[in-house]
Design a protein around this nucleic acid. Structure first.
Lengths: 193, 193
DNA sequence: ATTATCTATAGATCTATAGATAATGC
DNA sequence: ATTATCTATAGATCTATAGATAATGC
């Protein structure tokens, strides 16, 4: 029954990865430890040798989810039209695909309301990821003054997060699309100014 | 034990009002029917004569919460500097007080991530409230072209929702304040253009 | 006679722990 | 000898239902 240390470490990583996806899909309270561990091919009993508590896993999974999100931004930028790094991000972030894909999408949108009710560890995970977002955006907004760049980055991130959130809580797909389009235009204008 | 029809109707309203606040504070999954009914001075057993299911209450409470939010916007506008109706809304919506007051704050921020996982009835409640927000914003953004006004309204609402959401998921109060300030400036610029 | 609310409970599920097991690591 | 994982379970809580009660409404 016992596995090697490296296998145990791999198992831990798998649990965190699975949780980072399932929490985004169902919320921290929407999935139990039994199903989370099952998703990693283990049983519930193995959980507490790996994590202190469900809250502990929530913090680890939130960090992992944010890392995965910022990695996606980096990749999208690298693949985008050179000189227009933000366009690559806009085209997937403000899309109907992103609206539909909670599990692989931005954790701030998928879990933001839940995270606001969690403890400082979960919020620290989100804060670290958000600072990553801001750093990237700040370098793309085309401002010499770094304070102004930071302000623009925060405004742009707010607009993007809010638009996807709003697109998800309405039934009407046309309204959802309109939020995403309006946000994309707003963001492009802000960066261009 | 039995009460009059009018009393029963009042009880139902009380349950919806209590739920609209407690759901915002703890999430749909974060509070049980027992505590919800207790908040209205009743016991759990009385619940199912008033509502079909917890999901049913979630839809009713979401609608009530959105109505209360749009009422607040109307009141803030009426009290604001004439000619600058949006300023009244900005000053309370994009504030640290709003960040701290989940129970009485905007339902989209407090429950948006949760609502995205709910059924069509809950989303319909949110959609109705969001259309109210948009109608007000559309009349304030100072655009002759009504399509452009609608786009601006959606961008402004996205920015406001996103900023409060982001301010709540970070621990650092300075960063939270910066999100709110950056959003306020962005919104004022968008309206002025 | 009807019914809004109460107490009580069924049945499921949740987090966390206990003890057994079998393979690792020394 | 240690320990990662397993099965089993404690104890709490959750939604929903059943049956009793007492006041309303006809």
């Amino acid at each position: 029954m016992r596995v090697s240390r490296t296998q145990a470490a791999e198992n831990r990583e798998t649990v965190i990865n699975v949780a980072s996806r399932l929490f985004r899909e169902r919320g921290f309270d929407g999935i139990g430890l039994k199903d989370l561990m099952k998703g990693a091919g283990l049983t519930q009993g193995a959980f507490y040798k790996q994590f202190e508590s469900k809250d502990d896993l929530a913090a680890q999974a939130s960090r992992r989810a944010m890392e995965s999100a910022t990695d996606k931004w980096s990749a999208a930028t690298a693949a985008a039209n050179p000189g227009k790094p933000l366009d690559g991000v806009i085209s997937f972030y403000l899309s109907m695909d992103h609206r539909a894909e909670k599990m692989d999408g931005c954790p701030v949108v998928a879990l933001g309301s839940d995270a606001a009710r969690q403890g400082a560890e979960v919020k620290a995970s989100f804060e670290a990821g958000i600072r990553e977002y801001l750093e990237m955006l700040g370098s793309w907004v085309g401002e010499d003054d770094s304070e102004k760049a930071g302000d623009k980055a925060m405004a742009v991130l707010s607009t993007m997060v809010g638009a996807v959130m709003l697109s998800r809580v309405v039934n009407d797909p046309d309204l959802a699309q309109a939020f995403l389009d309006a946000a994309a235009n707003q963001v492009r204008e802000t960066v261009a100014i």
